[in-house]
C-alpha cells in the first residue's frame, strides 16, 4: 500500500532518518515505537508527503510519489494524519467548519461535505459539539474534533502521532474505539506510541525505531522475542514468560496478548 525505500532526512545538519525502508500493508494496524527523538514523527510526516526525503523514495500503491501538486493531492487523499497536539490542528472558529475543511478541499458537493461532516462527528461521538466554538472545547474534545477532521476525508490510511498521549481514560478508550471501527472497515492504521502494553495488544505489526533507523519490524511477538531492541516487554508477556520459566504454567504456544487472556491461562 505504502512503501518507504531507503529514505533519509535531515533537519539542517541533524540526521533524523537514515536509510529507512518499511512496507505498510493494507488493512493492518502498525504500532511505531521508539524513544523521543528516534525519528517517529519525521517518518510519519513522510507518509503523506509533508516532508520530502533527501534521498530514497516513497511509493503509494506501487507508484512513486513525485511531489508535484497532483501527486501530493492524491497521496493526501489516501493518507490522513492526526497530529499530536489538536490545538494547532484546529484553525476554525467552530467544530463543523473545521471538520469541513478537508472535504471542501477534495472538491466535493455541498451535500457530500455535509454528510461527511455529520458522519465523522457521529463516528467520533461529538455530534452535539457541531456548532460549538473550538476554543471552548476540552483537550479531549479537541482531540476528537481533530480526528473527525481527518476521518471526514475518508482516507484509506490514517497516521496517528501519539493519539492517546495526555488523554484521560474515557477519551483514550473513545479514540481507540474510533480507530478499531475504522480498521474493521479496512482502514490501515499507523500509530506512534510510548505505551508498550497498548502496542502489544493493539498492533498487527510493530516497527521499532532507534536513532533514525528501523531497529525492527514484525509481529509483536517477533519483536519482543528478539530481546535486543532496548524496549521493555509488555507486562502481560513478561508475567507469562516468568510463570513459564518458574514452571507455574505450561507453554502451550498460546502466548496471551490481553490481560484477560493471561488471567484465563491462570484459571
Amino acid at each position: 500500500m505504502i512503501e518507504a525505500k531507503g529514505i533519509t532526512y535531515k533537519y539542517d545538519s541533524v540526521t533524523a532518518l537514515s536509510d529507512v525502508s518499511i512496507h505498510i500493508e493494507r488493512g493492518l494496524k502498525y504500532a511505531l515505537l521508539g524513544a523521543n527523538g528516534a525519528g517517529k514523527t519525521t517518518f510519519l510526516l513522510h507518509l503523506n508527503g509533508i516532508l520530502r526525503p533527501l534521498s530514497g523514495k516513497i511509493f503509494c500503491d506501487g507508484t512513486e510519489v513525485t511531489y508535484d501538486r497532483k501527486a501530493l493531492t492524491t497521496l493526501r487523499r489516501h493518507v490522513g494524519v492526526v497530529f499530536q497536539d489538536p490545538e494547532v490542528q484546529l484553525f476554525s472558529a467552530t467544530v463543523a467548519e473545521d471538520v469541513s475543511f478537508g472535504p471542501m478541499n477534495l472538491g466535493l458537493s455541498f451535500e457530500e461535505v455535509k454528510r461527511r461532516v455529520d458522519d465523522s462527528l457521529n463516528a467520533c461521538g461529538i455530534y452535539e459539539l457541531k456548532e460549538r466554538a473550538t476554543h471552548f472545547l476540552s483537550h479531549g474534545q479537541k482531540k476528537l474534533a481533530a480526528i473527525a477532521g481527518v476521518i471526514a476525508m475518508e482516507p484509506q490510511v490514517i497516521v496517528l502521532d501519539e493519539p492517546i498521549a495526555g488523554l484521560d481514560q474515557r477519551h483514550k478508550e473513545m479514540v481507540l474505539d474510533i480507530f478499531s471501527r475504522l480498521n474493521t472497515n479496512g482502514v490501515t492504521l499507523i500509530m506512534s506510541t510510548h505505551d508498550i502494553d497498548l502496542a502489544y495488544e493493539w498492533a498487527d505489526r510493530m516497527i521499532v525505531m532507534k536513532d533514525g533507523r528501523v531497529a525492527g519490524v514484525g509481529t509483536p511477538l517477533e519483536i519482543f522475542s528478539k530481546g535486543d531492541l532496548s524496549i521493555s516487554k509488555p507486562i502481560v508477556l513478561e508475567i507469562y514468560e516468568r510463570l513459564i520459566s518458574r514452571g507455574l504454567l505450561r507453554d502451550n504456544g498460546n502466548v496471551p496478548r490481553f490481560r484477560d487472556e493471561l488471567l484465563r491461562e491462570l484459571g
Binding site: 509533508i50 493526501r76 490522513g80 497530529f83 469541513s100 475543511f101 478537508g102 477534495l106 455535509k114 461532516v117
Partner: peptide, 14 residues
C-alpha cells in the same frame, strides 16, 4: 497540519 488536509492556499470551509 493544513497541508496534510489538502490545503492549497485557500481556507474553504462549510
Amino acid at each position: 497540519a493544513l497541508e496534510s488536509r489538502g490545503y492549497t492556499g485557500e481556507l474553504r470551509v462549510m
